[in-house]
Amino acid sequence: MTVRALAVDFGGTLAQPGPSPDGATVAQTLKELENTVVPEGFAAAFEDAARQVRQEDRSRGVQSPFAEQLARAARRCAAVIPDPQAATEAVFTAVPDAFVDTRSAATLRRLHVSGLVCVLACDTQRPETVRRRTLRAAGIEDCFDALVLSSTLGVRKPHPRFYDTVVERAGCPAAEIVFVGDTPAKDAIGPYEHGMRAVLITSGPRPDGLPAPVGVIGDFTELPAYLEALDD
């Protein structure tokens, strides 16, 4: 069976997820920006706004810009954030991104060198510039032919538009793409129902309800052997 492209999740697949920004960190970061006014109640206002936005996004399958969380918090406590985009970049520079596993990075490079088109396909609050910086630091930015990020696209997995974009960026039919990740609904069932093949990464038993054609491996480093077996 022909496999021409990989769609690869990030946190939990290639990397250990980084922390979400907390109110205190966001407040301290914004105070250092020019012309920004951060009242004492901003940290608590941000925590409330972030919780509300996350709940709304998950119920609708979308990804609001991080700047929306900042704007809501600002309205609640009369903060002044003149450049929300610059503020977003500053926050995600102060808050560590995910740590890329070196063995997984080497495996990804091996797969890319073999000729597979590789698409990073993940849900994230972080802007593309921040995620690219993380990939560059791990030495794998050049391994990705395209990035499909919920923060840029505006929708989260398993929204159909997310998978449509993955197929478009991969540049080949859905049936020739293998989607690999660690979340059953978003990285296995969703892609499979969208016509792609899928491989779930899990350290536990095969989850109930997982379609029979979906593969299961214990770690991203096992993916080359799994793909080789598809050709047997």
Rank of each mutant, 00 (worst) to 15 (best):
F10D: 04
F42K: 05
D182F: 02
G61N: 06
D208C: 03
Q52T: 09
V91L: 03
T29D: 01
R197M: 03
V113F: 08
K31N: 03
Y226N: 07
A175H: 14
D97C: 03
F144G: 10
R132F: 01
P84V: 09
S203G: 11
D142A: 04
A79R: 14
Q55A: 15
V3N: 03
A94V: 12
T134E: 08
A79M: 14
C122M: 12
T25S: 08
C122L: 02
T129K: 07
P207M: 09
R131I: 13
F179G: 01
M1E: 00
R161W: 05
D48K: 14
A146S: 09
R76D: 15
G209W: 01
L210D: 01
F10T: 05
E193Q: 08
F66K: 03
S64H: 13
R58E: 13
T25V: 05
L108D: 12
A137Q: 07
N35M: 02
S104C: 12
G61S: 13
G190T: 12
F66I: 03
P96Y: 11
D83C: 09
V113P: 03
A121I: 14
M196T: 03
P21Q: 00
A170P: 13
Q55H: 11
A185D: 03
F99G: 06
R109E: 15
S64C: 11
L210K: 12
D219N: 13
V216D: 06
R206K: 01
V178G: 04
K186W: 02
F162Q: 05
A50R: 15
D208Q: 08
G181Y: 06
A44N: 07
R156C: 09
A121W: 10
E34I: 07
L116D: 15
D187R: 04
T221W: 02
P205N: 01
F220V: 13
N35D: 15
L147H: 07
D101L: 00
D208Y: 01
G154E: 12
Q63P: 13
P19T: 01
L14N: 07
I140G: 08
P39T: 04
G181R: 02
S203A: 15
E176I: 05
I140C: 00
G61P: 14
E222D: 14
